[in-house]
Amino acid sequence: MIDIASLLANGIAALVGPSAIFFALLAIGLNVHFGYGGLLNFGQIGFALVGGYGMGIAVLYFGLPLWSGVLVGIVAGVVLALLLGIPTLRLRADYLAIVTIAAAEILRLITRSTSMTDFSGGTQGLTGYGGSFRQLSPFDNGRFYDFYGVRFLGQDLWAICVGWTVVGLSLILVFLLVRSPWGRVLKAIREDEDAVRALGKNVFVYKMQALVLGGVFGAVGGIVFALTTQSLTPDFYSPPQTFFAYAALIIGGAGRVFGPVIGSMIFWFVLSITDNFLRQATAGSNPLISFIDNQDVGAIRFVLVGVALAVLMAFRPQGIFGKRSEVLLDAR
């Protein structure tokens, strides 16, 4: 039988949980890149990686305090954006796409390489850098807090509070920027770079600023998530994660301030419910759904995300709430 109460409780936990926060931050970054600036960054997970690992390595390898580790993580995001932007931002959009996905893969391969074990922990990853974060928690780290049946462990609750605060601050920052003349230039670049050049704006600088800003959101997402899970494992930072963030962004609506957050929450809510449903429906000796192997449920989510991404992009590129006339992405 399907336990609907537990489905919903899990779904609501996913709605506000650490994954929703992490992907909201990745998608806020992608919104600056793709939604406002028209930049195709397919390596956002690489920014999360340098953020998280920058912090972890700074603390564990160089013995810095956690707060400066956070700064190192953010700076790492800035540096990565500059490195990727300088060669590609003068070129057509798909070059950035290819280079970013390649760079994210390079970073993952390097961090997991056995030759880097002393530095990044190899495939084992890193732990033990974020103890002081948990010490700051006002909650009882080991206790479960119950909100009408939705339960969070104290340490997770702390991370969730911090995470949503960061998301809120990021949204304020994005809001201030996109309603300013700066945001107007960025939106204009998304539509037609040459027109903006002819109006005396240095397009390259704006694109670079957007790439850095969005990359920093990605790095901050990586930092928040690494503090939540208290561990860094290289293979978490694999390319499909970026596409998850894209799916969340497009669901919520690219080019809208709240789009990435709403999209990320919906994304994880739906994913959690379908996941749990399939798991329950395929489990046991007499499963409700017999043609799917219980073991394959994890892979099915990727299939669903992939199909959703393609279908949304084809039929509702404006997101599930947007109006057709507002679709921003038909340039080129």
């Binding site: 195709l40 894209y246 990727f302 393609a310 992009m313 084809a314 080129r332």
Partner: peptide, 19 residues
């Protein structure tokens, strides 16, 4: 459809097919 939209569709397709 714009080329960028097509590119994102190809990514969704890639993800679905791979899994």
């Amino acid at each position: 459809a714009g080329l960028i939209a097509q590119l994102v569709i190809s990514i969704g397709l890639a993800l679905a097919l791979r899994y």
